[in-house]
Nucleic acid binder design. Structure first.
Length: 742
DNA sequence: ATAGGGTTAG
C-alpha cells in the first residue's frame, strides 16, 4: 500500500497581500494587511503517530469493516459511533479510492473527526483536497473554532478568501466567534465590513455574532448599535447584549435591558438567566438574585446544571457561603467552573481553609483543575499567610501546566508578598513570561508592603523601560511604597507626574497616600491644604490618613476636625474612635480619652482583640494578650522572663505612659512583655532551631514598645523576625527594622 | 453544520 498517499501536501505560504479585495468604502478602518499577518501561524504539524510512525497495515487490509464503495464510506462516517481509531482507516480508504477530492465526503470526514476531538485528522484530509467548496471550508473553520483554535480558524478564513470562495451565513458566525474569543477587534471590524459587502445585514445569526464580538472586545456601545438595529431579535440577541453589559462593568444597564426583554414578552431561557444572575452578582444584589432563583424554579430550570452553577456562584459571592455550599453538595458534579465558583466564594469571604480543602479534594478526586482554580486557591493561601503553605502552592503550580499563566503568577506574587517573602515573590516575577501591567504592579505593591521603596521605584522604571504603560493601581503601589519608606519628595513627584505624564486621574487611594506621606513627615498644614484643594470629595481614607498623622505629631485641633469628618463618613468603625483616643493619649488628655471610650460604648462598639499568629512546622499558633492556654505555656513564660532580663541588661526602658492608655494596642495586663507578639516570639524561640527566621502575623498594628523591643530582641537572640501587622511588613534584624521606624 | 452564559490576578 502506498503510504505516501497519506503524506499530505503542506500548504505553501500563500501571500496574504492578495486577499479578497474589499471596497474601501465598506471598511470602517483603513485597510492594512498587518492585522491579517498575525494570523499566519506556524505551519501545521501532525502528531507523531500520524505523520511518522508506521501505519497499521491491518487497517488497510481489513475489508470486512468498510468496503471501497463510496456510499459505505459515507454511512460509516455518518455513524455517531465512529471511533477515533477508525478515522485513520477511513482516511486511508478515501485516499485509496481517490475520494479525498470529494467535497461532500471530505466535509463529513472533517465534521466527524473534529467532533471526536481529532482536528488534525480533519486538517490532513482537508489539505489533500485541491478545491474545497464553502461547505468544506465551513467544516474546517468550525472545527478549529470548536477546539478554541481561533487563530487557525481565522487563518483558514483568510485562505478561503485567497481561494476566492465567498463565505455564507454559516461561515461568518464561526469567524465572528473566533474574533471575539481571542479577542481581535481589528479583524472583527474587517469581518463586519465583509458582512456589509456580502449582504448579511439581516441575518440574525451573523448579527448576533457581531453583538457578541463588540461586547467581548469592550466596545459595548458599538454592540448596542448593532443590537438596536436588529428588527428580528432572538433570545440569543438579548442574552448577548445583557451579558455584554455585565462583562463591561455595567450590570445596571444589563438589568435594564433584561426588564425591556420581559416587556417584549420574550421568555427567558436558562442561558439568559445565567447572564442576569451574573449582573446581580456584580452588584451584590442578593435579594434580586434570590428572586431570579425563584424565577428559575417557576420556569422549570431548577435542574439545569449550568444555572445551578450560576446560582452557587451568586450565593457564594454575595456572602451566603452556606447556601452556596448546599447547592454545591446537591449537585455533586465534577464541573471545574462549579468548583472554581465555590473556591473563590470561600476565598472572597475569608474562609481560606475551606477553599484550600476544596482544592485538595479536587486533586484527590482527580477533578480537572484549571488556572482559575489555581488563582482562587492562591488567593486563599495569601490570606492564611503561612510561608510553608505558600511554598507548597508555588511548587504545585511550578510543576503544573499553568506555570506561565499571568493570572496565576500575579496571584503568586501577591501571595508571597503577603506571606512575608518579597524575595520569593521576585523569583516568581522573574520567571513570568510576557509580564503585563498587573504583574508589574503586583510586584511594586509587594515591595511597598515590605518598605522597600527604592526597589519599588527601580522596578517602576524598569517597567517603563520594558514598554509597559502604568495604570492607576501601579501608582497606588508606587505611592504607598514611597510612603512606607518615607520618600516624601519622590512620592510627591510621582503623584504629579502620574497626571501630567500618563494622564491618569488620581483617585481616593492616591490622595490618601499623599496625605499619609505629607502627614507622616510632619507637613500637617500642607496635608490639610492638599485635601482642601482636592477636585473630588475626600473619602474616609483621606481624612483617616490626616487623623493618624495628627496622632503622631499630637496636633489635637486638626485631628479633632479630621475625626469629625471621619465619623460622619463612617460612623460605625471602631478603629476610627481608637485613632482619636490615641491622639488624646499622645497629648496626655486623659479625660478626652475617657470621653471617646464613652462614645464607643454608647454606639455599642468595641475594639478588636489583639492576637498574634506564628507558624511552627506548618501549624499556625495563635496567642492573645497574656495567653496561658498553650500546653507549653510554662516554658513560654520562662522564655519571656529571660528575654525581659536580657532587654533590661541591654538598657531597654519601656515607655509605659503612652501604652497604658493606648486603646489601639493590646491593653496592659501584668507587664508590658506579655503582648501577644512577644508570646509568639517566645514560643518561636523555644520551638525552632537557632537562627531560624520567625514569622509572625498580627491583626492590629505593632505598638511602639513592642516595635522597639523586637528590634533589640532580634539582635540579642541573633534572629530575623518578620512581623506582618494590619498595615505592612516589618523585617527585624540586628537591632533594626526595615520600616526605619517610620 | 450556525449564535448567547457561569469561575481568576494587582
Amino acid at each position: 500500500m502506498a503510504l505516501n498517499l497519506v503524506v499530505v501536501r503542506r500548504i505553501s505560504n500563500c501571500s496574504l497581500l492578495s486577499l479578497y479585495p474589499i471596497p474601501a468604502k465598506f471598511l470602517p478602518l483603513p485597510l492594512t494587511t498587518a492585522t491579517l499577518f498575525e494570523f499566519d501561524v506556524s505551519p501545521f504539524k501532525f502528531p507523531k503517530q500520524y505523520s511518522s510512525s508506521p501505519l497499521h497495515l491491518d487497517y488497510y487490509d481489513d475489508d470486512s469493516l468498510y468496503g471501497s464503495d463510496p456510499d459505505m464510506l459515507y454511512s460509516s462516517l455518518l455513524d455517531n459511533s465512529t471511533h477515533k481509531k477508525h478515522l485513520l482507516q477511513i482516511h486511508a480508504r478515501l485516499v485509496v479510492s481517490g475520494l479525498q477530492e470529494n467535497n461532500f465526503l471530505a466535509t463529513k470526514f472533517v465534521h466527524v473527526s473534529s467532533n471526536l476531538g481529532e482536528i488534525h485528522y480533519a486538517r490532513s484530509l482537508f489539505d489533500e483536497n485541491p478545491d474545497p467548496d464553502v461547505f468544506l471550508w465551513n467544516a474546517i473553520i468550525r472545527g478549529y473554532s470548536r477546539h478554541s483554535l481561533y487563530r487557525d480558524a481565522l487563518q483558514m478564513y483568510s485562505r478561503m478568501q485567497v481561494a476566492g470562495v465567498i463565505p455564507d451565513s454559516f461561515t461568518l458566525p464561526y469567524v465572528l466567534k473566533a474574533c471575539s474569543s481571542l479577542p481581535v477587534l481589528e479583524m472583527g471590524r474587517r469581518v463586519h465590513a465583509q458582512i456589509f459587502r456580502y449582504g448579511f445585514e439581516s441575518d440574525v445569526f451573523v448579527q448576533n455574532g457581531l453583538v457578541a464580538l463588540y461586547a467581548k472586545c469592550g466596545e459595548i456601545n458599538r454592540a448596542r448599535i448593532v443590537f438596536d438595529g436588529l428588527y428580528d431579535r432572538t433570545i440569543v440577541s438579548w442574552t448577548s447584549i445583557i451579558s455584554g453589559y455585565a462583562q463591561n462593568g455595567q450590570p445596571l444597564e444589563a438589568l435594564k435591558i433584561f426588564s425591556q426583554m420581559r416587556q417584549f414578552n420574550v421568555k427567558p431561557d436558562a442561558i439568559s438567566l445565567v447572564s442576569v444572575l451574573r449582573a446581580y452578582t456584580d452588584v451584590e444584589g442578593l435579594e434580586q438574585g434570590k428572586s431570579i432563583h425563584s424565577c428559575v424554579i417557576k420556569l422549570g430550570f431548577e435542574f439545569e446544571p449550568d444555572l445551578l452553577i450560576s446560582l452557587t456562584a451568586m450565593y457564594a459571592k454575595c456572602g451566603e457561603v452556606i447556601v452556596a455550599k448546599s447547592l454545591f453538595d446537591q449537585m455533586e458534579i465534577p464541573n471545574v467552573i462549579l468548583w472554581n465558583a465555590m473556591i473563590s466564594g470561600y476565598a472572597k469571604n475569608g474562609c481560606a481553609d475551606e477553599a484550600i480543602n476544596l482544592f485538595r479534594k479536587m486533586i484527590s478526586k482527580n477533578i480537572r483543575t484549571d488556572s482559575v482554580t489555581a488563582s482562587s486557591t492562591i488567593l486563599a493561601c495569601a490570606q492564611v499567610g503561612s510561608l510553608e503553605l505558600a511554598r507548597w502552592m508555588d511548587d504545585y503550580i511550578n510543576r503544573s501546566e499553568y506555570r506561565n499563566d499571568v493570572f496565576v503568577n500575579t496571584a503568586l506574587i501577591d501571595m508571597y508578598a503577603k506571606c512575608g517573602s518579597v524575595d520569593f515573590a521576585r523569583s516568581v516575577f522573574d520567571r513570568t513570561p510576557d509580564k503585563d501591567v498587573v504583574v508589574w504592579s503586583a510586584m511594586i505593591v509587594g515591595y511597598g508592603l515590605h518598605g522597600r521603596g527604592h526597589e519599588a521605584i527601580n522596578l517602576f522604571h524598569a517597567m517603563k523601560y520594558a514598554g509597559v504603560e502604568p495604570n492607576d493601581v501601579t501608582f497606588v503601589g508606587l505611592l504607598s511604597a514611597c510612603n512606607h519608606s518615607g520618600l516624601v519628595q519622590k512620592g510627591w513627584e510621582y503623584f504629579h507626574c502620574m497626571k501630567k505624564e500618563y494622564g491618569i486621574e488620581p483617585r481616593h487611594q492616591h490622595y490618601a497616600c499623599v496625605v499619609d506621606l505629607l502627614g507622616r513627615a510632619g507637613y500637617l498644614d500642607e496635608a490639610y491644604e492638599f485635601i482642601m484643594k482636592m477636585p473630588i470629595e475626600p473619602a474616609v481614607t483621606v481624612w483617616g490618613a490626616l487623623l493618624s498623622a495628627c496622632k503622631i505629631y499630637r496636633h489635637v485641633t486638626l485631628g479633632e476636625y479630621a475625626a469629625e469628618r471621619v465619623f460622619m463618613l463612617d460612623p460605625l468603625n471602631a478603629g476610627h474612635y481608637v485613632q482619636l483616643s490615641n491622639l488624646y493619649a499622645s497629648a496626655r488628655m486623659w479625660d478626652c480619652v475617657a470621653k471617646v471610650r464613652v462614645m464607643m460604648r454608647e454606639k455599642g462598639l468595641s475594639k478588636d482583640l489583639g492576637y498574634s499568629l506564628i507558624e511552627i512546622n506548618g501549624k499556625l499558633q495563635a496567642f492573645h494578650v497574656g495567653d496561658k492556654s498553650h500546653p507549653k505555656s510554662k516554658e513560654i513564660f520562662e522564655e519571656l522572663e529571660k528575654l525581659e532580663r536580657k532587654l533590661k541588661e541591654a538598657g531597654f526602658v519601656p515607655d509605659t505612659d503612652s501604652v497604658l492608655h493606648d486603646l489601639n494596642y493590646e491593653e496592659k495586663e501584668v507587664t508590658l512583655c506579655n503582648h501577644s507578639e512577644r508570646l509568639a516570639i517566645a514560643y518561636g524561640l523555644i520551638s525552632t532551631p537557632l537562627g531560624t527566621t520567625l514569622r509572625i502575623t498580627k491583626n492590629l498594628r505593632a505598638c511602639v514598645n513592642c516595635h522597639s523591643a523586637t528590634k533589640l530582641i532580634s539582635k540579642l537572640v541573633s534572629r530575623e523576625i518578620v512581623v506582618r501587622d494590619a498595615n505592612r511588613f516589618h523585617h527585624f534584624k540586628d537591632g533594626f527594622c526595615s520600616c526605619g521606624d517610620y
